[in-house]
């Protein structure tokens, strides 16, 4: 499969370039925000001397260009640096071990991945099933209802869905906890239970997209001659769809699933804040609040990287699932 390999390499190279551009955009954007780390951490106590002393300690008194290239150089050697908050603490203390950005992000990222995993495990089969069923019973009451339900949930802001779920599943019927403060050393069962409400919220957000695409892709194929042939053979409608239509509809569906999985990693900020879930989204919000550029940059790179990798995976899978693309003439 040299064709596929070539695509992968090409896309990876493009991905690295994208990451580079993203890092420039983020750095510029954070620098354009009013206030910097020194001013924000000191708040009302920001005397000029204290601000200057923190800026000197963190190298914030250097020109932006110098700072960017220093960061880039470190990053290229695999060193994501140390957060300003840690560095500031360090200069207060002198000596001692320091938490790097990587060690700060790693546990948070693992938590976000756990949430994304639970959501995907619920949302993907659920959306596919709904999509197939509504293709099968298209234009029926079921189809209409599914469409209205999923479209209205995707159209509502996430925090609204989150509060609705909290209202029904935590306040009125106390089935699930509204607080998803998972921590290290928590048993899997309890962790799963605490993650369920945010996972359900995200499920509501991502289902519509995947379900609509599944439905459309399948219905699109239902008019093709080979489907008619299958039907004429006397196959049951369900079998026609699962056996004949679905495999050919996979490419667009995979693409949409990949996009939504990427969203589960990058778009969880609001949901994490509402449910107090200690994931990367909360860390990101905290870091932006105090203009902790190394952490913001690292989070953004992870977000961008997730998008690029999942898109790449989607492309490769759709090539693999389509013999015409697998063996180009």
């Amino acid at each position: 499969m040299p064709g596929v390999l070539k695509i992968i390499l090409q896309r990876l190279a493009l991905g690295v370039l994208t990451l580079f551009i993203v890092s420039i955009v983020i750095f510029t954007a954070v620098n354009m925000l009013p206030g910097d780390f020194a001013e924000l951490i000191l708040g009302q106590g920001a005397t000029p001397e204290a601000v200057a002393s923190i800026r000197r300690d963190l190298g914030l008194d250097q020109p932006a260009l110098t700072r960017y290239f220093e960061w880039l150089g470190d990053m290229l050697t695999g060193n994501l640096g140390t957060s300003f908050a840690q560095l500031n603490f360090q200069t207060n203390m002198g000596g001692g071990e320091m938490k790097t950005v990587v060690s700060q992000i790693a546990p948070r990222f693992a938590n976000t991945m756990f949430l994304a995993g639970v959501t995907a495990a619920i949302a993907v089969p659920f959306a596919l099933m709904l999509g197939i069923l509504s293709a099968l019973y298209r234009n029926s009451v079921f189809d209409r209802f599914t469409n209205i339900f999923t479209l209205s949930s995707i159209s509502s802001p996430e925090f609204f869905l989150a509060y609705i779920l909290i209202l029904f599943l935590a306040v009125l019927n106390p089935i699930l906890p509204s607080l998803s403060n998972i921590y290290e050393g928590m048993g899997f069962g309890e962790r799963l239970q605490k993650t369920l409400l945010p996972a359900l919220t995200l499920t509501l957000v991502v289902t519509a997209h995947m379900m609509r695409m599944t439905r459309a892709a399948i219905i699109n194929l239902l008019a093709s001659p080979y489907i008619e042939m299958a039907r004429l053979k006397g196959m049951s409608p369900m079998r026609v769809i699962v056996k004949h239509a679905l495999p050919n509809a996979l490419a667009p569906i995979i693409n949409v699933i990949a996009l939504n999985l990427a969203y589960l990693i990058t778009g969880v900020v609001v949901v994490e804040v509402v449910f107090v879930y200690p994931g990367i989204g909360q860390l990101f919000v905290d870091a932006v609040k105090i203009r902790d550029i190394p952490v913001v940059q690292a989070c953004c790179l992870i977000f961008a990287g997730a998008y690029i990798l999942l898109n790449l995976t989607a492309d490769i899978l759709s090539v693999l699932s389509n013999p015409r693309l697998r063996h180009p003439k």
């Binding site: 509060y163 909290i166 935590a170 306040v171 106390p174 906890p177 509204s178 607080l179 403060n181 804040v273 509402v274 449910f275 107090v276």
Partner: peptide, 19 residues
């Protein structure tokens, strides 16, 4: 002590008896 900086989330946690 659980860090809950969001005031609505804090209120929910109290009302649902989680804190």
């Amino acid at each position: 002590f659980i860090a809950i900086n969001d005031s609505t989330a804090r209120m929910n946690a109290l009302l649902t008896g989680q804190v």
